[in-house]
Design a protein around this nucleic acid. Sequence first.
RNA 1: UCCCCAGUAGCUCAAUGGUAGAGUAGGUGACUGUUAAUCACUUGGUUGUAGGUUCGAGCCCUACCUGGGGAGCCA
Length: 432
Amino acid sequence: MTHVDVARLKDHVGKPVTVRGWLYNCRSKGKIHFLQVRDGSGMVQAVLVKGVLADADFERVGKLGQESSLEVDGTVREDVRSPSGVELDVTGVRPIQDVKDYPIALQEHGPDFLLQNRHLWLRSRKQHAVMRIRSRIETAIRGFFDDRGFTLVDAPIFTPSACEGTTTLFEVKYFDDDKAYLTQSGQLYMEAAAMALGKVYCFGPVFRAEKSKTRKHLTEFWMLEPEIAYGTLEDVMDISEALIVHIFSEVLRTCRQELATLERDVTKLEDVARGGFPRVTYAEAAKILVDMNSGFVPGNDFGAPDEQALATHFGRPVFIHRWPAEIKAFYMKRDPNDPSLALGVDMIAPEGYGEIIGGGQRAEDLDFLLEQIKLHQLPQEAFEWYLDLRRYGTVPHAGFGLGLERTVAWVTGREHIRECIPFPRMLYRIYP
RNA sequence: UCCCCAGUAGCUCAAUGGUAGAGUAGGUGACUGUUAAUCACUUGGUUGUAGGUUCGAGCCCUACCUGGGGAGCCA
């Protein structure tokens, strides 16, 4: 008998197949067992009628516990009662391991318990669906950039110093007496790579040692960072909008089943996939907040409540660009029309998912950067290689960073970012 | 680091300051179309820890521990 993935069973109607997987649930109705079998590709109901097997084997199958591993032989049959359209008429069952007391029951569980059992939680239907969508999003991202002539350039994980000098970093010992830090961003390296390869992106894990305890934060998360030589602030907004549209379109095209499992409102995703995101300046956004009497003080950075208010106001992804320079990073280019403004842009997602993208145009002038490094009291010697990029053929360039888990949370409609990475690393939690 | 909330059976949760309970999982049995099947019976407890108040504390008070949510910071 040929082994077939559950997802492909509909191509084998009427034929004998073997399914290899795990018992998700078993409902026994006296002389019929209904075995819910999952194999990672999908779930199928295998129907075992008494008399097909020896009575002792029939009894034994009916007593297999949740997540018992097994191989099931059977004939594929179309059935309108099945959500997947097919069922398996069982002709044989080979239990591999009979499991008792599987920790995760078919009921609600608390977050602490689920996170302690993350290695098992991944098997449940919704987590399975989230991981599938995450994978599809990563594929869509790579496809998007590969199709547009970008080169994937992997950034280092160990770095000699802070990229931006702002956030708290994880420190590790680097051989004898040197210290190294886990990267918080590959951006500066992408700027170097863009001068070599034109259009580049990196996509990998980054680390933040801030003691953040919210549904939007992880200590280890994955970030996509494209960088474009000769790119501008407008390019960043155009490309990031096209990217978001592409991601949402691809998920809608390929993950209908998973979205249904997650009970995600797809009309929300379809709206995003239409594009045409509003673009406002910081000053315009600030005015909106002031007009709402939100208590926002113009000139300040937007806090989480401000961000939420803006997201609600627009109800769509929104770009906010041209920020007061003093609240943005040292490497941001100034607006030629108003040097107090930085050519930075953030994209805020609707539905409370917050800042998904941050980026902008980079300063390409050597003297300006030297001044900024002094002003921010950064160690110039650590940035000499970065300054070389402005000494040897400097050009305008721009790029952005996209937080993968926040994007996954948004697409899948998850309450918490911790469900959007296979093994979340969070404040005080590094198991399993 | 700060603010708020919660810790009771393996899990999810009840319990006016007065005999610790239910559902679920586990066990035993019934049932030929179940969708977290249903039904009957059943095992299961140092109420996070340490003090305190009280005739009496799961409940009130203090400290600590663990977890959750939020702020700041960011993606």
